[in-house]
Structures are given as structure tokens and as C-alpha cells.
Design a protein around this nucleic acid. Structure first.
Lengths: 210, 210
DNA sequence: AGCAAAGTTAAACAAACGTTTAATTTAAAC
DNA sequence: GTTTAAATTAAACGTTTGTTTAACTTTGCT
């Protein structure tokens, strides 16, 4: 991976925001150049093409995501459920902290044509699943978790719920219930609510009888 | 609402599929015209513009969705949890039966710019919530459901899980576990799995103590 | 048959697109 | 100070975009 200068990074950030707001095809390189305050030609000069620019964004965020995943399970002294609670919280923080990127992921995973970006997304999801599965299996064998658990569906609900909350934010923001809160506390509020909800959800499915 | 001829409908269907697969901006009117086997000018002639075409798709599906919602709660003899179970199953069937449209919804709700389409989507979600809320509240007062329930989050998980499963299908399809199944039974299999998972999830959160 | 409206077509439209060019400026190295 | 490479620019490139035009065909009605 090549070095990324400060100027390249600012282009990446602007492009990420615009791709998230208007979609890849809905954003022109001229839009990006203008908002990033650089000449149009610089985008091809630095990244090769508009497609490569998107790839660069994904690779940039993905590199951090994979490090995130690796660091997710260092503490082996925790009880299985606490491990998962910790994962959920760190997950919420991660995804809510890079909402623009998550928007791009949401959009890109819908594309039918096979793209390098889509493949990277699913590689990441598989890694997450590979991390969660052994925790569940171990706890099942220890008799702590319920026998009959669909881990794939559980992870789908985790991803899906957070991915749904991101666009819903703009709408909830208009509710009188939150209108007097400032942006930061509103966001923190929502993260708290997400955390409580998802932990309940996981605990119920993992440990309760039905 | 105007009448829709068979030719117009075939354009709508083709456009729906292409918008779902490649996104709105990723699909050209020439693509649509070619696949629908009509002249390019017919799209403007019938629908006015590309934007209006998308609106027509959304309005067409939305009309059915609102009728769907109205018919959702006729049987008042059921117990609250059974009502919700019935809702979940009908929901899964509805959404998995119009996956292309759901893809469009997923994409469109991410747009930052205020669009008539995005507003329609949220109107629909609010209606769903308005339908679920009284069932929960009534059952809470009757002591059947737990006191502390975040209905918004619960609905978010419902929508989110299904919306996540739709793009995941293409990936799961490649798993050796399902490779020998034909398309229809695979889909039915997945719907079954979704149903079991979501019912567990709802039952746990609605009725269990924590 | 004759006429008006609706349907259909190929061609053309200007605008916007992503990308490239060639010239110029800046920076670094010797 | 000269040289060499990198950075930056305005302009132009050829496509593709959504939409419109104007001519033509079909349809339905009296």
C-alpha cells in the first residue's frame, strides 16, 4: 500500500461523504474536486480513476476494520456473554463513528455486478462471523448458551439494526422528543439505546429457553 | 392515479429490476428501454422523466403496501403475541416477494437530499410503527408483555434484519450447504429461517424478564 | 372513408460525464 | 544555479447522459 499524503486524504474524506450522501454514480468527480478544493485532474492523477477512488476509500477503512477485528478478542478472562456485550458496544461505536462509510457499504453490497468492493465487504462479514462462532460454540458446550442458535441470523440482526438506524437518525432528529438535544448528545443517546436493545436481544437468544 | 397499461407496467418492472441491481443513477433510460424493448422516447412520453419513473415505481408498490398494512390487523380474537407472529410472517412474505423494490427502498432511504421517494418510505415506516405500538401497549397494560420495551428499536431490527438478508442471499447461495437446492426451495428455506429467528427475537424481548 | 387523438419512431439536442493532454509551477537534488 | 521529477493547472477530449423534436403509424370514433 502506497503512502497517502494529507491532500489525498482530504480528497478521500470528501469523496466518502459525497458517495454516502448521493451514491457513487450520483456524485461527479467535479463535485468532489470542488468540495475538496483541488483541480479535477488531481483525482485521476492520484487515484487513477473514479472507480479506483472508491476502492481506495474502502481499502482505507477496511484496513482499520481488520485491525479492529483482530483487537476485538484479546481478553480471554471474560465470561462468554460479557465478551459478546463488549463486542456489541465496540461495534456500535465503530459503525456509528464512520456512518458515511457504512452508508457506502450499505449501498455497495446491493450491487448485482461483481465488484472488488462488494467482495471486500463480504470478506469482512465472514471474518466477523468467524470470530463470533467459536465463542458461541464454546459456551454452548459449556452449557452456558442455548443449544439451538442461528449465529448467521443473529449477526444479520446486529448488522441490520445498526445499518437501519443510520438513515433513521435524520428522521428521528425531527421528533419533538429529541429536538432540544444537540447533535452530540443525541447521537450518544441513540448509541445508548442501541446498546441496551442489542444486548437484550443477544442475551435473550443466546441464554433463554423457548 | 392514472390507469397503467400493460406496456407501462412492463417498463415499470424492468426499471425496478435495473434500479435495484445497479442503482438509480447507475441505470440509464437507454438500458431500461432496451431491456423493456421499447423506444427511448416512450419513457418520457409515459412517465415524464426518469425521476418520475422512479416515483411511479414507488407509488405503485406503495399503494399495495398500504393496502397490505390495512389488512394486517383484522383478526382481533388472537392473542397479542400471535398477532405479532402473524405480522412477522406476512411481513417476511411481503418483503421477500418484492426484493427488487426493497433494494430500491434500501438505497433511496440513504439519500441525504430531500426527495418525495424518501418521504414516502418514512411515511410507510411510521404507519407500521403506529400499527405495532397499540398492540404492545395494550398487552403491556394487560400484563402480558414486559413493561420496558423499545418498540422503535424492535421495528428497526425487524426491517434491518430482512433488509440485510436480501443482499446476503447472493452470497449464501454459494455456500456448499445450499448449493444443491434449487432457487425456490432455497428461498423458502431462508424465509423459514428468518421466521423462526424473528419470532424468537420478538418473543424474547416482549415477554421475558431481564 | 375521413378525421383526430394516441402511440411510436429515428434523429438530434444540449448538458454533464470521466478522463487526458500539454503547458506551467513548485520542489528537491546535485 | 541548473537540472529533474513531481505537482498543479486550464482546456479539450470523446462519450454518454436525459430529454425533445418532428415525422410517421396506428387506433378509435362518427
Amino acid at each position: 500500500m502506497e503512502e497517502i499524503s494529507e491532500k489525498q486524504l482530504s480528497i478521500l474524506k470528501v469523496a466518502e461523504r459525497l458517495f454516502a450522501d448521493q451514491g457513487f454514480h450520483g456524485t461527479s468527480v467535479r463535485d468532489i474536486a470542488q468540495e475538496a478544493d483541488v483541480n479535477i485532474a488531481m483525482i485521476s492523477y492520484y487515484f487513477g480513476s473514479k472507480d479506483k477512488l472508491l476502492e481506495s476509500i474502502v481499502k482505507y477503512r477496511m484496513k482499520a476494520s481488520q485491525k479492529f477485528i483482530q483487537d476485538l478478542l484479546v481478553d480471554d478472562t471474560m465470561k462468554p456473554l460479557d465478551k459478546i456485550y463488549a463486542m456489541i458496544d465496540r461495534f456500535i461505536n465503530k459503525m456509528m463513528g464512520e456512518q458515511n462509510f457504512q452508508c457506502i457499504m450499505s449501498r455497495e453490497q446491493l450491487n448485482s455486478e461483481k465488484s472488488p468492493v462488494r467482495d471486500l465487504i463480504w470478506e469482512l462479514k465472514r471474518e466477523m462471523l468467524g470470530l463470533m462462532q467459536p465463542i458461541v460454540t464454546d459456551a454452548q458446550e459449556a452449557g452456558i448458551f442455548h443449544k439451538d442458535i442461528d449465529v448467521v441470523m443473529l449477526m444479520t440482526s446486529l448488522f441490520g439494526t445498526i445499518h437501519q438506524i443510520i438513515p433513521a437518525q435524520k428522521l428521528l432528529r425531527n421528533d419533538p422528543e429529541f429536538s432540544d438535544l444537540d447533535e452530540a448528545t443525541f447521537k450518544e443517546n441513540l448509541k445508548q439505546r442501541l446498546s441496551i436493545h442489542l444486548k437484550k436481544l443477544f442475551k435473550a437468544i443466546l441464554t433463554h429457553e423457548f
